[in-house]
Design a protein around this nucleic acid. Structure first.
Lengths: 214, 214
DNA sequence: TCCTCGTTTCTTACGCTGTAAGAGTAGCTG
DNA sequence: CAGCTACTCTTACAGCGTAAGAAACGAGGA
Protein backbone atom coordinates (compact mmCIF):
# COMPACT_ATOMS: atom_id res chain seq x y z
CA UNK A 1 0.00 0.00 0.00
CA UNK A 2 1.69 3.16 -1.15
CA UNK A 3 0.21 6.62 -1.02
CA UNK A 4 0.21 6.68 -4.79
CA UNK A 5 -2.85 4.97 -6.14
CA UNK A 6 -1.79 1.89 -8.04
CA UNK A 7 -1.87 2.79 -11.76
CA UNK A 8 -5.42 2.43 -13.05
CA UNK A 9 -6.13 2.15 -16.74
CA UNK A 10 -6.25 5.63 -18.17
CA UNK A 11 -8.59 4.77 -21.03
CA UNK A 12 -6.12 6.08 -23.56
CA UNK A 13 -6.60 5.94 -27.28
CA UNK A 14 -4.48 7.12 -30.12
CA UNK A 15 -7.40 9.29 -31.11
CA UNK A 16 -7.73 10.80 -27.67
CA UNK A 17 -4.02 11.52 -27.55
CA UNK A 18 -4.19 13.36 -30.86
CA UNK A 19 -7.24 15.25 -29.63
CA UNK A 20 -5.52 16.50 -26.53
CA UNK A 21 -2.33 17.24 -28.47
CA UNK A 22 -4.34 19.41 -30.85
CA UNK A 23 -5.90 21.27 -27.94
CA UNK A 24 -2.50 21.75 -26.38
CA UNK A 25 -0.97 23.07 -29.60
CA UNK A 26 -3.91 25.39 -30.15
CA UNK A 27 -3.35 26.84 -26.72
CA UNK A 28 0.42 26.84 -26.28
CA UNK A 29 1.92 26.33 -29.73
CA UNK A 30 3.93 23.45 -31.18
CA UNK A 31 7.17 24.51 -29.60
CA UNK A 32 5.71 24.07 -26.13
CA UNK A 33 4.47 20.56 -26.80
CA UNK A 34 6.62 17.87 -25.22
CA UNK A 35 5.80 14.26 -24.61
CA UNK A 36 6.03 14.84 -20.88
CA UNK A 37 3.65 17.78 -20.92
CA UNK A 38 1.25 15.97 -23.20
CA UNK A 39 1.39 13.04 -20.83
CA UNK A 40 0.66 15.36 -17.93
CA UNK A 41 -2.36 16.74 -19.78
CA UNK A 42 -3.61 13.16 -20.02
CA UNK A 43 -2.67 12.25 -16.44
CA UNK A 44 -0.13 9.79 -17.69
CA UNK A 45 3.63 9.47 -17.86
CA UNK A 46 5.37 10.38 -21.09
CA UNK A 47 6.48 6.89 -21.97
CA UNK A 48 2.92 5.65 -21.86
CA UNK A 49 2.18 7.60 -25.01
CA UNK A 50 4.68 5.52 -26.92
CA UNK A 51 2.35 2.58 -26.78
CA UNK A 52 -0.02 4.45 -29.05
CA UNK A 53 2.32 6.63 -31.10
CA UNK A 54 5.72 5.43 -32.33
CA UNK A 55 7.38 8.82 -32.07
CA UNK A 56 6.74 12.49 -31.57
CA UNK A 57 7.11 13.00 -35.29
CA UNK A 58 4.35 10.50 -35.95
CA UNK A 59 2.21 12.47 -33.55
CA UNK A 60 2.89 15.59 -35.60
CA UNK A 61 1.87 13.76 -38.73
CA UNK A 62 -1.35 12.75 -37.10
CA UNK A 63 -2.02 16.38 -36.22
CA UNK A 64 -1.47 17.48 -39.79
CA UNK A 65 -3.65 14.69 -41.01
CA UNK A 66 -6.43 15.77 -38.73
CA UNK A 67 -6.59 19.15 -40.47
CA UNK A 68 -7.28 17.61 -43.85
CA UNK A 69 -10.38 15.80 -42.65
CA UNK A 70 -12.95 18.57 -43.19
CA UNK A 71 -11.91 18.89 -46.81
CA UNK A 72 -13.51 15.57 -47.53
CA UNK A 73 -16.89 17.22 -47.15
CA UNK A 74 -16.38 19.66 -49.98
CA UNK A 75 -17.95 18.03 -53.00
CA UNK A 76 -19.05 19.65 -56.23
CA UNK A 77 -22.71 20.51 -56.44
CA UNK A 78 -24.65 19.58 -59.56
CA UNK A 79 -23.87 21.96 -62.37
CA UNK A 80 -21.26 23.83 -60.37
CA UNK A 81 -18.28 24.95 -62.38
CA UNK A 82 -14.95 23.48 -61.34
CA UNK A 83 -13.39 26.80 -60.43
CA UNK A 84 -16.20 27.58 -58.02
CA UNK A 85 -15.85 24.22 -56.36
CA UNK A 86 -12.08 24.68 -56.19
CA UNK A 87 -12.61 28.04 -54.56
CA UNK A 88 -14.80 26.43 -51.91
CA UNK A 89 -12.20 23.75 -51.35
CA UNK A 90 -9.50 26.39 -50.93
CA UNK A 91 -11.60 28.34 -48.44
CA UNK A 92 -12.36 25.20 -46.46
CA UNK A 93 -8.69 24.36 -46.24
CA UNK A 94 -7.86 27.88 -45.21
CA UNK A 95 -10.58 27.90 -42.57
CA UNK A 96 -9.24 24.73 -41.03
CA UNK A 97 -5.68 26.04 -41.02
CA UNK A 98 -6.79 29.28 -39.41
CA UNK A 99 -8.75 27.36 -36.79
CA UNK A 100 -5.52 25.69 -35.70
CA UNK A 101 -2.73 28.11 -36.54
CA UNK A 102 -0.37 26.33 -34.18
CA UNK A 103 -0.35 23.34 -36.51
CA UNK A 104 0.46 25.50 -39.52
CA UNK A 105 4.24 25.18 -39.26
CA UNK A 106 3.78 21.43 -39.17
CA UNK A 107 1.41 21.33 -42.10
CA UNK A 108 3.83 23.42 -44.10
CA UNK A 109 6.85 21.22 -43.60
CA UNK A 110 5.34 17.78 -43.84
CA UNK A 111 4.33 15.90 -46.97
CA UNK A 112 0.91 14.39 -47.26
CA UNK A 113 1.22 10.65 -46.99
CA UNK A 114 -1.73 9.32 -45.04
CA UNK A 115 -4.32 7.16 -46.69
CA UNK A 116 -7.14 9.53 -45.81
CA UNK A 117 -5.38 12.63 -47.13
CA UNK A 118 -4.43 10.87 -50.33
CA UNK A 119 -8.04 9.87 -50.66
CA UNK A 120 -9.00 13.53 -50.66
CA UNK A 121 -6.44 14.22 -53.34
CA UNK A 122 -7.77 11.39 -55.47
CA UNK A 123 -11.34 12.62 -55.08
CA UNK A 124 -10.33 16.14 -56.04
CA UNK A 125 -8.49 14.88 -59.09
CA UNK A 126 -11.62 12.98 -60.07
CA UNK A 127 -13.60 16.22 -60.09
CA UNK A 128 -11.05 18.02 -62.20
CA UNK A 129 -10.66 15.17 -64.67
CA UNK A 130 -14.43 15.01 -65.03
CA UNK A 131 -14.27 18.72 -65.81
CA UNK A 132 -12.00 17.99 -68.73
CA UNK A 133 -8.47 18.18 -67.35
CA UNK A 134 -5.89 15.51 -68.02
CA UNK A 135 -4.57 13.81 -64.90
CA UNK A 136 -1.26 15.65 -64.97
CA UNK A 137 -2.88 19.04 -65.48
CA UNK A 138 -5.43 18.25 -62.80
CA UNK A 139 -2.66 17.61 -60.31
CA UNK A 140 -0.96 20.82 -61.43
CA UNK A 141 -4.11 22.79 -60.77
CA UNK A 142 -4.87 21.17 -57.44
CA UNK A 143 -1.29 21.46 -56.26
CA UNK A 144 -1.18 25.08 -57.30
CA UNK A 145 -4.27 26.06 -55.38
CA UNK A 146 -3.45 24.06 -52.25
CA UNK A 147 0.12 25.29 -51.97
CA UNK A 148 -1.15 28.78 -52.62
CA UNK A 149 -3.55 28.52 -49.72
CA UNK A 150 -0.89 27.09 -47.47
CA UNK A 151 1.64 29.77 -48.34
CA UNK A 152 -0.86 32.54 -47.99
CA UNK A 153 -2.24 31.36 -44.68
CA UNK A 154 1.24 30.70 -43.39
CA UNK A 155 2.33 34.25 -44.06
CA UNK A 156 -0.78 35.49 -42.38
CA UNK A 157 -1.08 33.36 -39.28
CA UNK A 158 1.76 30.92 -39.01
CA UNK A 159 4.28 32.31 -36.61
CA UNK A 160 7.14 30.58 -34.96
CA UNK A 161 6.57 29.63 -31.33
CA UNK A 162 3.62 30.94 -29.41
CA UNK A 163 4.09 34.51 -30.57
CA UNK A 164 0.82 35.87 -31.82
CA UNK A 165 1.76 39.01 -33.65
CA UNK A 166 0.12 40.10 -36.83
CA UNK A 167 2.00 42.03 -39.47
CA UNK A 168 0.52 45.22 -38.19
CA UNK A 169 1.36 44.52 -34.59
CA UNK A 170 4.98 43.70 -35.16
CA UNK A 171 5.76 46.31 -37.77
CA UNK A 172 3.42 49.14 -37.02
CA UNK A 173 5.73 50.78 -34.56
CA UNK A 174 9.01 50.26 -36.35
CA UNK A 175 8.23 51.92 -39.64
CA UNK A 176 8.19 55.68 -40.00
CA UNK A 177 9.93 57.56 -42.77
CA UNK A 178 12.23 54.73 -43.74
CA UNK A 179 9.55 52.64 -45.42
CA UNK A 180 6.84 55.13 -46.41
CA UNK A 181 4.90 52.93 -48.82
CA UNK A 182 4.96 49.91 -46.56
CA UNK A 183 3.91 51.98 -43.59
CA UNK A 184 1.04 53.51 -45.54
CA UNK A 185 -0.14 50.17 -46.86
CA UNK A 186 -0.14 48.67 -43.39
CA UNK A 187 -1.80 51.69 -41.82
CA UNK A 188 -4.58 51.75 -44.38
CA UNK A 189 -5.60 48.31 -43.34
CA UNK A 190 -6.06 45.62 -45.94
CA UNK A 191 -7.66 42.95 -43.85
CA UNK A 192 -6.32 39.49 -44.30
CA UNK A 193 -9.59 37.99 -45.41
CA UNK A 194 -9.93 40.49 -48.20
CA UNK A 195 -6.39 39.92 -49.30
CA UNK A 196 -6.97 36.20 -49.48
CA UNK A 197 -10.13 36.60 -51.52
CA UNK A 198 -8.37 39.00 -53.84
CA UNK A 199 -5.50 36.61 -54.38
CA UNK A 200 -7.64 33.51 -54.71
CA UNK A 201 -9.88 35.16 -57.25
CA UNK A 202 -6.89 36.23 -59.27
CA UNK A 203 -5.38 32.76 -59.20
CA UNK A 204 -8.59 31.00 -60.18
CA UNK A 205 -9.16 33.48 -62.98
CA UNK A 206 -5.68 32.74 -64.26
CA UNK A 207 -6.30 29.01 -64.11
CA UNK A 208 -9.59 29.34 -65.98
CA UNK A 209 -7.93 31.43 -68.65
CA UNK A 210 -5.25 28.82 -69.06
CA UNK A 211 -7.75 25.98 -69.21
CA UNK A 212 -9.74 27.75 -71.93
CA UNK A 213 -6.74 28.88 -73.92
CA UNK A 214 -4.54 25.78 -73.69
CA UNK B 1 51.25 25.66 -19.66
CA UNK B 2 48.67 23.05 -20.41
CA UNK B 3 48.79 20.70 -23.31
CA UNK B 4 45.83 22.50 -24.75
CA UNK B 5 47.03 25.50 -26.67
CA UNK B 6 45.90 28.59 -24.81
CA UNK B 7 42.78 29.83 -26.54
CA UNK B 8 43.84 31.86 -29.57
CA UNK B 9 41.48 34.31 -31.20
CA UNK B 10 39.36 32.40 -33.66
CA UNK B 11 38.73 35.36 -35.93
CA UNK B 12 35.00 34.92 -35.57
CA UNK B 13 32.44 37.24 -37.08
CA UNK B 14 28.71 37.20 -37.01
CA UNK B 15 28.85 37.02 -40.77
CA UNK B 16 31.20 34.06 -40.75
CA UNK B 17 29.04 32.26 -38.23
CA UNK B 18 25.99 32.71 -40.44
CA UNK B 19 27.99 31.54 -43.43
CA UNK B 20 29.04 28.33 -41.78
CA UNK B 21 25.56 27.80 -40.34
CA UNK B 22 24.12 28.07 -43.85
CA UNK B 23 26.63 25.54 -45.15
CA UNK B 24 25.81 23.23 -42.29
CA UNK B 25 22.07 23.48 -42.87
CA UNK B 26 22.51 22.95 -46.59
CA UNK B 27 24.37 19.77 -45.86
CA UNK B 28 22.64 18.30 -42.81
CA UNK B 29 19.31 20.11 -42.48
CA UNK B 30 18.02 22.47 -39.80
CA UNK B 31 17.12 19.75 -37.39
CA UNK B 32 20.74 18.66 -37.13
CA UNK B 33 22.04 22.14 -36.38
CA UNK B 34 22.94 22.64 -32.75
CA UNK B 35 25.02 25.36 -31.19
CA UNK B 36 27.62 22.81 -30.14
CA UNK B 37 27.93 21.32 -33.59
CA UNK B 38 28.07 24.74 -35.19
CA UNK B 39 30.77 25.66 -32.71
CA UNK B 40 32.67 22.51 -33.62
CA UNK B 41 32.45 23.43 -37.29
CA UNK B 42 34.09 26.73 -36.37
CA UNK B 43 36.63 25.18 -33.97
CA UNK B 44 35.05 26.94 -31.06
CA UNK B 45 32.96 26.09 -28.04
CA UNK B 46 29.22 26.57 -28.27
CA UNK B 47 29.03 29.43 -25.80
CA UNK B 48 31.48 31.48 -27.81
CA UNK B 49 28.84 31.91 -30.47
CA UNK B 50 26.65 33.79 -28.03
CA UNK B 51 28.98 36.76 -28.21
CA UNK B 52 27.89 37.26 -31.79
CA UNK B 53 24.35 35.93 -31.82
CA UNK B 54 21.92 36.44 -28.93
CA UNK B 55 20.15 33.12 -29.41
CA UNK B 56 19.69 30.24 -31.76
CA UNK B 57 16.46 31.79 -32.92
CA UNK B 58 18.28 34.96 -33.90
CA UNK B 59 20.68 32.81 -35.88
CA UNK B 60 17.72 31.32 -37.71
CA UNK B 61 16.44 34.79 -38.50
CA UNK B 62 19.82 35.70 -39.90
CA UNK B 63 19.69 32.63 -42.13
CA UNK B 64 16.28 33.58 -43.44
CA UNK B 65 17.45 37.10 -43.98
CA UNK B 66 20.36 35.91 -45.98
CA UNK B 67 18.04 34.32 -48.52
CA UNK B 68 16.33 37.59 -49.29
CA UNK B 69 19.55 39.32 -50.29
CA UNK B 70 19.65 38.32 -53.96
CA UNK B 71 16.19 39.75 -54.49
CA UNK B 72 17.61 43.22 -54.09
CA UNK B 73 19.24 42.84 -57.49
CA UNK B 74 15.98 42.35 -59.34
CA UNK B 75 15.02 45.81 -60.60
CA UNK B 76 12.62 46.69 -63.38
CA UNK B 77 14.20 47.32 -66.74
CA UNK B 78 13.18 50.41 -68.71
CA UNK B 79 9.82 49.89 -70.34
CA UNK B 80 9.32 46.49 -68.72
CA UNK B 81 5.77 45.77 -67.69
CA UNK B 82 5.21 45.24 -63.98
CA UNK B 83 3.98 41.69 -64.32
CA UNK B 84 7.12 40.65 -66.16
CA UNK B 85 9.29 42.21 -63.47
CA UNK B 86 7.20 40.55 -60.80
CA UNK B 87 7.68 37.22 -62.54
CA UNK B 88 11.43 37.72 -62.49
CA UNK B 89 11.29 38.61 -58.82
CA UNK B 90 9.28 35.48 -58.08
CA UNK B 91 11.72 33.30 -59.98
CA UNK B 92 14.67 34.84 -58.20
CA UNK B 93 13.09 34.17 -54.84
CA UNK B 94 12.30 30.63 -55.82
CA UNK B 95 15.81 30.03 -57.10
CA UNK B 96 17.28 31.19 -53.81
CA UNK B 97 14.91 29.03 -51.80
CA UNK B 98 15.71 26.02 -53.93
CA UNK B 99 19.42 26.68 -53.54
CA UNK B 100 19.01 26.32 -49.77
CA UNK B 101 16.06 24.02 -49.22
CA UNK B 102 17.14 23.32 -45.66
CA UNK B 103 16.30 26.90 -44.74
CA UNK B 104 12.84 26.64 -46.28
CA UNK B 105 11.06 25.53 -43.10
CA UNK B 106 12.59 28.50 -41.36
CA UNK B 107 11.68 30.96 -44.07
CA UNK B 108 8.14 29.67 -44.01
CA UNK B 109 7.57 30.12 -40.31
CA UNK B 110 9.33 33.39 -39.62
CA UNK B 111 8.08 36.90 -40.37
CA UNK B 112 10.24 39.32 -42.27
CA UNK B 113 11.48 41.96 -39.87
CA UNK B 114 15.03 42.86 -40.76
CA UNK B 115 15.87 46.27 -42.12
CA UNK B 116 17.35 44.86 -45.30
CA UNK B 117 14.37 42.63 -46.08
CA UNK B 118 11.95 45.44 -45.40
CA UNK B 119 14.00 47.56 -47.74
CA UNK B 120 13.36 45.05 -50.50
CA UNK B 121 9.66 45.18 -49.76
CA UNK B 122 9.66 48.95 -49.89
CA UNK B 123 11.54 48.96 -53.20
CA UNK B 124 9.12 46.45 -54.68
CA UNK B 125 6.15 48.51 -53.53
CA UNK B 126 7.74 51.53 -55.22
CA UNK B 127 7.76 49.70 -58.53
CA UNK B 128 4.15 48.65 -58.24
CA UNK B 129 2.97 52.07 -57.14
CA UNK B 130 4.81 53.62 -60.07
CA UNK B 131 2.92 51.15 -62.24
CA UNK B 132 -0.36 52.57 -61.02
CA UNK B 133 -1.29 50.53 -57.97
CA UNK B 134 -2.37 52.12 -54.72
CA UNK B 135 -0.13 51.27 -51.77
CA UNK B 136 -2.59 48.83 -50.26
CA UNK B 137 -3.19 47.03 -53.54
CA UNK B 138 0.53 47.00 -54.22
CA UNK B 139 1.13 45.20 -50.95
CA UNK B 140 -1.70 42.81 -51.77
CA UNK B 141 -0.11 41.95 -55.08
CA UNK B 142 3.40 41.60 -53.71
CA UNK B 143 2.25 39.57 -50.74
CA UNK B 144 0.20 37.33 -52.99
CA UNK B 145 3.08 36.51 -55.28
CA UNK B 146 5.68 36.05 -52.55
CA UNK B 147 3.53 33.81 -50.40
CA UNK B 148 2.62 31.89 -53.50
CA UNK B 149 6.26 31.26 -54.30
CA UNK B 150 6.98 30.25 -50.73
CA UNK B 151 4.06 27.86 -50.55
CA UNK B 152 4.80 26.34 -53.90
CA UNK B 153 8.49 25.86 -53.25
CA UNK B 154 7.78 24.53 -49.80
CA UNK B 155 5.52 21.82 -51.13
CA UNK B 156 8.13 20.94 -53.67
CA UNK B 157 11.36 20.95 -51.74
CA UNK B 158 10.77 21.79 -48.11
CA UNK B 159 10.75 18.60 -46.16
CA UNK B 160 11.07 18.10 -42.46
CA UNK B 161 14.46 16.99 -41.22
CA UNK B 162 17.12 15.81 -43.61
CA UNK B 163 14.79 13.61 -45.58
CA UNK B 164 15.16 14.30 -49.25
CA UNK B 165 12.24 12.60 -50.85
CA UNK B 166 10.36 14.02 -53.77
CA UNK B 167 6.66 13.40 -54.21
CA UNK B 168 7.42 10.70 -56.68
CA UNK B 169 9.98 8.98 -54.53
CA UNK B 170 7.80 8.80 -51.47
CA UNK B 171 4.51 7.99 -53.13
CA UNK B 172 5.47 6.15 -56.27
CA UNK B 173 5.59 2.77 -54.63
CA UNK B 174 2.58 3.03 -52.37
CA UNK B 175 -0.07 3.86 -54.91
CA UNK B 176 -1.54 1.17 -57.15
CA UNK B 177 -5.23 0.76 -57.75
CA UNK B 178 -6.31 2.70 -54.72
CA UNK B 179 -5.47 6.13 -56.16
CA UNK B 180 -5.53 5.63 -59.94
CA UNK B 181 -5.60 9.27 -61.00
CA UNK B 182 -2.91 10.34 -58.55
CA UNK B 183 -0.71 7.43 -59.56
CA UNK B 184 -1.14 8.25 -63.23
CA UNK B 185 -0.43 11.95 -62.74
CA UNK B 186 2.72 11.17 -60.80
CA UNK B 187 3.85 8.51 -63.22
CA UNK B 188 3.40 10.75 -66.24
CA UNK B 189 5.91 13.15 -64.81
CA UNK B 190 5.00 16.80 -64.45
CA UNK B 191 8.35 18.24 -63.59
CA UNK B 192 8.40 20.73 -60.77
CA UNK B 193 9.84 23.56 -62.79
CA UNK B 194 7.07 23.31 -65.34
CA UNK B 195 4.46 23.20 -62.64
CA UNK B 196 5.84 26.33 -61.09
CA UNK B 197 5.89 28.18 -64.38
CA UNK B 198 2.37 27.06 -65.10
CA UNK B 199 1.14 28.27 -61.75
CA UNK B 200 3.07 31.51 -61.77
CA UNK B 201 1.82 32.36 -65.22
CA UNK B 202 -1.74 31.70 -64.16
CA UNK B 203 -1.39 33.83 -61.06
CA UNK B 204 0.19 36.77 -62.87
CA UNK B 205 -2.46 36.59 -65.57
CA UNK B 206 -5.12 36.73 -62.90
CA UNK B 207 -3.46 39.72 -61.27
CA UNK B 208 -3.19 41.56 -64.58
CA UNK B 209 -6.84 40.92 -65.33
CA UNK B 210 -7.78 42.27 -61.93
CA UNK B 211 -5.61 45.35 -62.35
CA UNK B 212 -7.16 46.12 -65.73
CA UNK B 213 -10.71 45.42 -64.64
CA UNK B 214 -10.70 47.03 -61.20
C1' DT C 1 -10.66 -19.99 -6.90
C1' DC C 2 -5.99 -19.31 -8.48
C1' DC C 3 -2.67 -18.88 -12.14
C1' DT C 4 -1.02 -17.27 -16.15
C1' DC C 5 -0.50 -14.09 -19.85
C1' DG C 6 -0.72 -10.24 -22.81
C1' DT C 7 -1.66 -5.23 -22.40
C1' DT C 8 -0.90 -1.20 -20.41
C1' DT C 9 1.61 1.80 -17.34
C1' DC C 10 5.53 3.41 -14.86
C1' DT C 11 10.61 3.92 -13.49
C1' DT C 12 15.04 4.64 -14.60
C1' DA C 13 18.55 6.07 -17.54
C1' DC C 14 21.29 8.06 -21.49
C1' DG C 15 22.82 11.39 -24.46
C1' DC C 16 21.45 15.41 -26.30
C1' DT C 17 19.69 20.29 -26.32
C1' DG C 18 19.76 25.85 -25.42
C1' DT C 19 21.83 28.88 -22.60
C1' DA C 20 22.75 31.43 -17.73
C1' DA C 21 26.79 32.52 -14.87
C1' DG C 22 31.24 33.42 -14.24
C1' DA C 23 36.26 32.56 -14.65
C1' DG C 24 40.33 33.32 -17.31
C1' DT C 25 43.30 34.70 -21.10
C1' DA C 26 44.83 37.65 -25.33
C1' DG C 27 46.05 41.56 -27.00
C1' DC C 28 45.38 46.52 -27.22
C1' DT C 29 45.74 51.04 -24.83
C1' DG C 30 47.91 53.84 -21.62
C1' DC D 1 54.85 47.67 -17.35
C1' DA D 2 49.57 47.99 -15.66
C1' DG D 3 44.93 47.96 -16.79
C1' DC D 4 41.07 47.29 -19.63
C1' DT D 5 38.15 45.31 -22.96
C1' DA D 6 36.98 41.75 -25.98
C1' DC D 7 36.88 37.34 -26.46
C1' DT D 8 36.85 32.38 -25.22
C1' DC D 9 36.22 28.73 -22.18
C1' DT D 10 34.30 25.82 -18.20
C1' DT D 11 30.73 24.49 -15.51
C1' DA D 12 26.09 23.80 -14.64
C1' DC D 13 21.01 23.33 -15.02
C1' DA D 14 16.63 22.16 -16.56
C1' DG D 15 14.51 20.14 -20.13
C1' DC D 16 14.10 17.14 -24.23
C1' DG D 17 13.03 12.36 -27.05
C1' DT D 18 13.11 7.82 -26.18
C1' DA D 19 15.47 2.87 -25.21
C1' DA D 20 15.09 -0.84 -21.79
C1' DG D 21 12.85 -3.23 -18.63
C1' DA D 22 10.15 -3.78 -14.31
C1' DA D 23 5.56 -3.90 -12.34
C1' DA D 24 0.71 -3.89 -12.04
C1' DC D 25 -3.57 -4.45 -14.31
C1' DG D 26 -7.77 -7.09 -16.52
C1' DA D 27 -9.15 -11.21 -18.68
C1' DG D 28 -9.07 -16.15 -19.83
C1' DG D 29 -8.36 -20.95 -18.76
C1' DA D 30 -7.57 -24.73 -15.15
Amino acid sequence: MSDRRARPRAGLTRERIVDVALEFVDEHGVAALSMRKLGAALDVEAMTLYHYVPSKDALFEALVDRLTVPMGGVRPEPGERWERWLGRLARAYRAELLAHPGVLPLAATRPVTSRVALGHVEAALRVLVDAGFGPVRALDVLNTVMTFVLGHTLAEAGRTPGAEMSDVDSLGELDATEFPLLARALAEGARHGERFEFALTALLAGLVADAVGG
